[in-house]
Design a protein around this nucleic acid. Structure first.
Lengths: 149, 149
DNA sequence: CTAATTGCAAAAAGTTTGCAACCAT
DNA sequence: ATGGTTGCAAACTTTTTGCAATTAG
């Protein structure tokens, strides 16, 4: 099937690091993790492997800002990302309804939906604290005047 | 008023290029267009201006793949992009329903939606050219598997 | 065996920055 | 006048690549 691809030790290691990853590491981070498992891997190989896997549709490149590309195992837009603008943390979520809507929209425009990318940027809404006496919510609440919940 | 910002000739030119742009130019392209209006502008200034405007929320940086950052006047996620995977062309569209859905999803996760980014990747579906003759429509519509770019 | 793959280091590509000259305010 | 701004080139950062050595199939 595939051309003449070889399953080398390096690729095995990188593949493992990737499938073990619960986050969205950039190349530098992949390199670091891979190096732990096998110190003789070079960055160039990580770059080459990552590019190869992306071309094959196995990996998806993400851009959450910050200059470097980040990667995750491809699920063909089956889940999305919500980035907390204050902490920079990335939260994943899915939504069947959304996927259908996208397919309809693409179709309406005359396209077959192949993949998609959705990123929401939001700010945590301070929960109506039913907790203990918390008289100082100044820090969390400090922001612009308007907010809707 | 803004801090101590100056409205220089260069900024005026770059601002004009940006608001005139119907597409999503990268810095190199912005530089080229700006240079036409005023040849003494340098790339560094374009980079600096673009960064400034992004920080001020006036511009939004996009990543459609291809290494360079692309820019467009900010509309706070009021429109989205459909990238034709075969031609690389970017098509814009809006969808009220979608915006509401996103707000609901963010809210469900405990976040106030601030901005979002949505990109669809799709392949053009050859339209069964139905001018007035209804007769040849059936035949053309059957070929669901017939797809070519 | 031999084409694919790797490491290394050099090079490319994209973006940022130090500094002296410059120019809106 | 004077502090923000610019151009230029050097510096950085991230990613790619040429080439000889290495290795999976």
């Amino acid at each position: 099937m595939e051309k003449g691809l070889k399953m080398t030790g390096q690729r095995r290691v990188i593949a493992r690091v990737l499938s073990d990853a619960e986050d969205h590491p950039d190349v530098e981070e992949l390199y670091r993790r891979a190096s732990e498992l096998d110190p003789r891997i070079s960055v160039a190989t990580v770059y080459r492997t990552v590019r190869l896997l992306e071309e094959k549709g196995i990996l998806e490149r993400r851009d959450f800002g910050g200059g470097r590309a980040r990667y995750e195992v491809s699920e063909h837009g089956r889940h999305y990302h919500l980035i907390d603008v204050d902490t920079g943390k990335v939260l994943e979520f899915e939504d069947e309804e959304h996927e259908d809507l996208m397919r309809r929209i693409a179709s309406r425009l005359g396209f077959e939906l192949i993949s998609m990318r959705l990123e929401l940027f939001g700010r945590r809404i301070p929960e109506p604290e039913a907790a203990q006496t918390e008289s100082k919510r100044s820090k969390a609440a400090r922001g612009k005047g308007t907010r809707k919940a």
